[in-house]
Design a protein around this nucleic acid. Structure first.
Length: 636
RNA sequence: GCCAGCGUAGCUCAGCUGGUAGAGCAACUGAUUUGUAAUCAGUAGGCCGGGGGUUCGAGUCCCUUCGCUGGCUCCA
């Protein structure tokens, strides 16, 4: 007699050893059809594994996250099988499920997306055949024998513990694999190959480069279609495309990886920074600015020369070596240590929109997301240990307000002491405890990243979630136990003795360039009116109305709006179309009726038109919308 | 930095296996004076990213270099 306990506490008894599938069938046929695997006690195993003892099991279906992972893992095998059929000389390495799908790293001649239809066609065949996926256990010696000549698999097997090794196979295909897998290949029918790229064996550039083929798979066609639609949408929102279409910024060979902001881009930039300054002033920050080029000796003192030199641009003038700053902190240290500080001055919150340059590898550059020159919305907070919690809390609240202004939610992550680090246990305890206490007081859940802190201190990272659900790490709050030491920072406490201040680096936007890129994609180019480069455009319907329209233009400009006029001799339809394509939030048409009545007809981006709006009513509405930084563009 | 793909007019893109460069939009000129997503006609515009090579002949093939894109890697 075998007693099986389900997650809800129900117990079912079976006469003889049974498989997971038997258990599922005993409940319902529908369940049996939907099951892909099971959790037996605490292990994920195949559905056809035998249960021969009292156990608790959880049947894994398409509803469970684990189910999707298993499905994708099988999909990776199906892809590998198809590839081996087409390219018999290909050598398999590893093929895991990843967040958005799966990939398989294969040693083979380079393939391109043009080869996908062929591979997918072969995969379809395998899927149609609904080949059962079978597990087989062998000894290490047998496994080594099986993979004779397959250097990658041999290497992987040698790294495994002795004992049984599992193979999974379907049809003629066999692969070294821990499993589990879905019962048969038919489950993977909703799949798609996505992209291909190079990847090194074991992520080691000295090792051979493999073809990494990415794909994704879902249980239902709808989920797959939704995901493909999401990819399409992300492509449409690509900030490089929108930046080009809206004339916001450009890149040039003369300065790879360093964006050139055009006038329209600068309007957004300035709106963003005006907001930033407003919030920071209100939060008790002062602002500083430090040079971008500083003497080598400073970088030696800060430790960057030793540890970050490859990423630094340097220059020698009059035989003196300089480096262009990759970070703002050392300059900030000089300001702090320029004069003595009393405990009464603390906490001191010194912000800096600092322009930094980092020589990133050419291959990683990517629009505004990954650049070589960018501005950090940096700040250095100096405090006594008793301030830590309150100060961190202050940064969290400030971040919440600022992200909230864009409709962005965020997640928190605390990273603790890594293996290689400076400082004493006690220092780390105070520091990490301070961050954790602040997080607890803040009240939002946070993830813990053990050992992922910087070598100089623990940190909190803030990840924002954009309109498409994508996560971006922007903010960071890092406690630094190194620089105050290296720069011998101190303050005089009540006891008239020098004490070392606690120093925190923090950013909220992170890189302003990157944040702008994120915002472009988040808003799909349709910025809220307070940020929009052009907030309104006036369209006279014929040449005779240009003079009057220009008067209206001046009224609106004087009220502080960013307004343009399109006085070209073009059809109204054309001017409306172009204004819409530029995502100008308000399109103001002026014809004879408007001139006579002293009104405006207001078209919003959704295409709705409101006629007969008085100038005053228009300004009242728009200015309050801007003043409140409303996100909605639907204001008339 | 590595691998793959790409680089043609201001923009978006066409140009088959090598035969001497093309469209739409934008610009300019003229006509049209327009009521909410493209009025019509004409004109001009390119050392086909740079350099080298193969060839009678290269946008097309080869080498090299720069840049971009996707990954990898790195990220004090």
């Amino acid at each position: 007699m075998i007693n099986i306990t389900f997650p809800d506490g129900n117990i079912k008894a079976f006469e003889n050893p049974v498989s997971g599938l038997d258990v599922a069938k005993s409940i319902s046929d529908g369940l049996a059809r939907n099951c892909v695997a099971m959790k037996l006690d605490d292990d994920l195993v195949d559905l056809d594994a035998t249960i021969d003892h009292d156990a608790k099991i959880k049947l894994i279906t398409s509803k469970d996250p684990e189910g999707l992972e298993i499905l994708r893992h099988t999909a990776a095998h199906v892809m590998a099988q198809a590839i081996l059929r087409i390219y018999p000389d290909a050598k398999l390495t590893i093929g895991p499920a990843v967040e958005d799908g799966f990939y398989y790293d294969i040693d083979m001649a380079p393939v391109s997306e043009d080869d996908f239809p062929k591979i997918e066609a072969e995969m379809k065949k395998i899927i149609k055949e609904k080949l059962p996926v079978r597990r087989r256990e062998v000894t290490k010696a047998e496994a080594l024998e099986f993979y004779k000549g397959e250097s990658y698999k041999l290497e992987m097997i040698s790294d495994l513990d002795d004992g049984t090794i599992s193979f999974y196979g379907q049809g003629e295909f066999t692969d070294l694999c821990r499993g589990p897998h879905v019962p048969h290949t038919g489950f993977t029918k909703n799949l798609k190959l996505i992209k291909v790229s190079g990847a090194y064996w074991r992520a080691d550039p000295s090792k051979p480069q493999l073809q990494r083929i990415y794909g994704t798979a879902f249980f239902t066609k709808k989920e797959l279609d939704d995901y493909l639609t999401f990819l399409e949408e992300a492509k449409k929102r690509n900030h490089r495309k929108i930046g080009q279409a809206l004339d916001l910024f450009s890149f040039h060979e003369e300065a790879p990886g360093m964006p050139f902001f055009h006038p329209k881009g600068m309007e957004i930039w300035n709106a963003l920074l005006d907001f930033w300054r407003l919030e920071h002033r209100a939060a008790g920050y002062v602002e500083s600015k430090t040079p971008i080029m500083l003497n080598r000796s400073l970088w030696e003192r800060s430790g960057h020369w030793e540890n970050y030199r490859e990423n630094m641009y340097t220059s020698a003038i009059d035989d003196i070596e300089y480096a262009i700053k990759p970070m703002n902190c050392p300059g900030g240290m000089l300001i702090y240590s320029h004069k003595p500080h009393s405990y009464r001055d603390l906490p001191l919150r010194v912000a800096e929109i600092g322009l930094v340059h980092r020589h990133e590898l050419s291959g990683v550059l990517s629009g505004l997301f990954r650049v070589r020159a960018f501005h950090q919305d940096d700040a250095h907070l100096y405090m006594t240990p008793r301030h830590i919690k309150e100060e961190i809390l202050g940064v969290l609240h400030l971040s919440e307000r600022m992200y909230g202004a864009f409709g962005l939610g965020f997640q928190l992550e605390l990273s603790t002491r890594p293996e290689k680090s400076i400082g004493t246990d006690e220092q780390w305890e105070t520091a990490t405890g301070g961050l954790a206490a602040a997080l607890d007081a803040y009240g939002q859940e946070y993830a813990l990243n053990e050992g992922d802190g910087a070598f100089y201190g623990p940190k909190i990272d803030l990840h924002i979630r954009d309109a498409l659900g994508r996560m971006w790490q922007c903010g960071t709050i890092q406690l630094d136990m190194s620089l105050p030491e290296r720069f011998n920072l101190y303050y005089i406490d009540k006891d008239n003795q020098k004490h070392r201040p606690i120093m925190i680096h923090r950013t909220i936007f992170g890189s302003i360039e990157r944040f702008l890129g994120i915002l472009i994609e988040h808003f799909a180019g349709k910025f809220p009116i307070w940020m929009a480069p052009t907030q309104a455009i006036i369209l006279p319907i014929n040449d005779d109305l240009v003079a009057y329209s220009t008067e209206v233009l001046d009224i609106l400009k004087n009220a502080g709006l960013r307004v343009e006029i399109d006085s070209r001799t073009e059809s109204l339809n054309k001017k409306v179309r172009e204004a819409q394509l530029q995502y100008i939030p308000l399109i103001l048409t002026i014809g004879g009726k408007e001139k006579e009545a002293g009104t405006l007809s207001v078209r919003t981006l959704d295409g709705n038109v409101k006629y007969g709006v008085s100038h005053q009513a228009f300004l009242d509405t728009v200015l309050s919308h801007i003043g409140n930084r409303e996100l909605s563009l639907d204001m008339f």
